[in-house]
């Protein structure tokens, strides 16, 4: 979703609701397709975390860049990538966002500034600061947003990148989506000190903590921080607390998770909370239902299109490796 100037608050929040619903429908359909054997690789679902990508990206422009991680479907959709092309990518079919070369973990859409989901944690941060340097060098009025998870805050390159962004005063917003788990490990149990905000602050970076399941709050804070970054205020850090409703990957049985925890945390999932706010602010249940159905229909159509699309020519495995010294 591009930056918008909707002054009517319920109308703006309703747009956020629609984007979150589209992400939710995509993730649920992707799991169904995976279980049915149509998705060749693993999928990392964003269910329960939709408010963060949606609230942040709704304040970005097409010309702004985002760098995502392995859990990137939501970021891509929120930044404006085409869900049908994404579904084709998961299915490994012609018309996929990355030509069926990457799959779920390497979804990218450079046409909307989505510089890629990525399988290596923290690499988005180092590449993100470099992308910001390129924007500065080219004189382009745009910013870079890097999404990381809580687990990534224990990788060294993350700290190099925070330092780097500060010393060169780069236009970067770091968004840490703290979904509680680093794969199967409770991140807090392997993390010293006061956590990501304190760590960012140690670099002199303005850092903010927020309830990441409150899309209104994320939207408002992101608008403020992005405006500061865009205005030359240097790097900022947004720490959004959330909960990974699904496993690390869809087939993860979550044997490490206490019984009842998921059900308890599901009560705070962001779409239901957003719906409650909308109902209190003049949007009717029928409108919400219509929005949900519309999202589900769009994704159902995407799945149908993915089923109908052919597999790519196997020989394309040899394309786009390199120009000089290309495979024979």
């Amino acid at each position: 979703m591009a930056e918008e100037t909707i002054t009517n608050k319920p109308a703006r929040v309703f747009e956020l609701y629609k984007t979150m619903s589209l992400i939710r429908a995509f993730e649920e359909a992707a799991e169904v397709a995976y279980d049915a054997g149509f998705v060749n690789g693993s999928i990392h679902q964003y269910i329960g975390e939709e408010a963060i990508g949606t609230g942040v990206c709704s304040n970005l422009r097409d010309t702004d860049y985002i760098l995502s991680n392995h859990r990137g479907h939501g970021h891509a959709i929120a930044k404006g990538a085409n869900p049908e092309a994404m579904m084709k990518e998961l299915f490994g079919r012609v018309g996929g966002t990355s030509g069926a070369k990457g799959g779920s973990m390497h979804i990218a859409d450079f046409s909307v500034g989505m510089l890629g989901a990525n399988g290596i944690l923290a690499d988005g941060t180092t590449m993100g600061v470099g992308a910001a340097q390129a924007l500065v060098l080219r004189g382009v009025d745009a910013i870079v947003t890097v999404f990381v998870g809580d687990g990534t805050t224990n990788r060294g390159p993350f700290y190099e990148a925070l330092n780097w962004s500060m010393i060169y005063e780069l236009p970067v917003l770091f968004v840490c989506e703290n979904n509680t788990y680093a794969s199967s490990t409770v991140t807090r149990s392997v993390t010293a000190g006061a956590g990501p905000v304190a760590r960012a602050e140690a670099f002199g970076m303005p850092a903010f903590d927020i309830d990441g399941n409150d899309v209104l709050a994320v939207d408002e804070l992101a608008a403020d921080l992005i405006s500061r970054v865009r205005g030359g205020g240097g790097p900022h850090f947004l720490h959004a607390r959330t909960y990974r409703i699904k496993g690390h990957i869809s087939r993860d049985k979550m044997l490490y998770r206490p019984e009842g925890e998921t059900e308890e945390r599901w009560k705070g999932e962001p779409i239901g909370r957003c719906a409650a706010w909308l109902l209190d602010n003049g949007i009717g249940q029928d409108e919400l239902d219509e929005a949900t159905s519309s999202a589900e229909k769009q994704i159902a159509d995407a799945v149908e299109a993915a089923h109908a699309a052919p597999f790519p020519d196997a020989k394309l495995a040899f394309a786009d490796v390199q120009d000089i010294g290309a495979p024979q």
Binding site: M127, V129, A131, Q133, L135
Partner: peptide, 24 residues
């Protein structure tokens, strides 16, 4: 354009990748 960096090899290389992808 001649950027003197900290001792941060991951980011020297990672930033170069990001900057290359972003048109430089």
């Amino acid at each position: 354009r001649i950027v003197n960096t900290p001792i941060s090899e991951n980011t020297i290389m990672g930033a170069a990748v990001g900057a290359a992808v972003a048109g430089t």
